[in-house]
């Protein structure tokens, strides 16, 4: 029995460790910081190890690990979701319509683009965030995303479209601190953080 456990562990590591970088980067996009991302990966791996016999097909290991990680994120971090994104109906295209020539993105999306990305992602619900991560980070097709998330391909397409709109608009919008100064806005900022 002991030997069996040992072999299992070796096989578990061989199968799962190649996906750790992937898991970590998904977790990073989910949680927005290194600390929580590391915890999320560690939790995922502990759960995966305890459920290892449930993995039927080695080829689906990556998707299986992803699902466990996503479930952990949904279970624990849901309450941490900050004020969700409110769609005011305006189009992100309005921000770029009058921009001149190429290279405009760097001009609009300030220097610390990575921080801004995390800030915007934090406001987008998981429904839209997961397809975005798989699309942009993993360059998956609609079909592959549908399989990973176990949702119909039509749903993937519409969530992706909405997610992209939220994301692009969030990135292009000037951060509120920059356009508005003064006490009232600072107070609103406080309320938003609650």
């Amino acid at each position: 029995m002991v030997t069996l456990r040992r072999v299992d562990k070796k096989r578990f590591k061989e199968l799962t460790y190649p996906h750790l970088e992937f898991l970590y980067n998904v977790a990073l996009k989910y949680s927005g910081n290194k600390y929580d991302a590391e915890d999320l990966v560690q939790e995922t791996m502990v759960t995966a190890y305890s459920k290892f016999q449930q993995l039927r097909d080695d080829k689906s290991c990556r998707a299986w690990l992803f699902t466990i990680l996503r479930n952990h994120f949904l279970k624990e971090r849901k309450q941490l979701l900050r004020r969700p994104y409110l769609d005011d109906g305006s189009s992100y295209l309005d921000y770029i319509r009058d921009e001149k020539s190429s290279g405009f993105v760097d001009r609009i999306v300030e220097k610390d683009a990575n921080k801004k990305l995390h800030r915007v992602l934090a406001k987008i619900s998981e429904k839209f965030k997961s397809p975005l991560i798989l699309y942009y980070m993993e360059e998956m097709t609609y079909q592959e995303i549908a399989e990973y998330l176990d949702i119909p391909i039509g749903t993937v397409m519409s969530r992706l479209a909405r997610g992209k709109r939220y994301l692009k608009k969030g990135l292009l919008q000037p951060s509120s601190r920059k356009i508005n100064k003064g006490k009232i806005v600072q107070m609103m900022g406080l309320v938003m953080q609650l």
């Binding site: 750790l20 970590y24 560690q42 502990v46 999306v109």
Partner: peptide, 30 residues
């Protein structure tokens, strides 16, 4: 311009390095 924006977004989603100590941490929790 939208395509440029899209490429920019894709670039922001690129992998970041994971702390190599994670392997040890996971080893231990297993």
């Amino acid at each position: 311009k939208d395509e440029e924006l899209d490429r920019f977004v894709a670039k922001m989603f690129q992998y970041e390095m994971m702390d190599k100590r994670m392997y040890g941490k996971i080893d231990r929790s297993l």
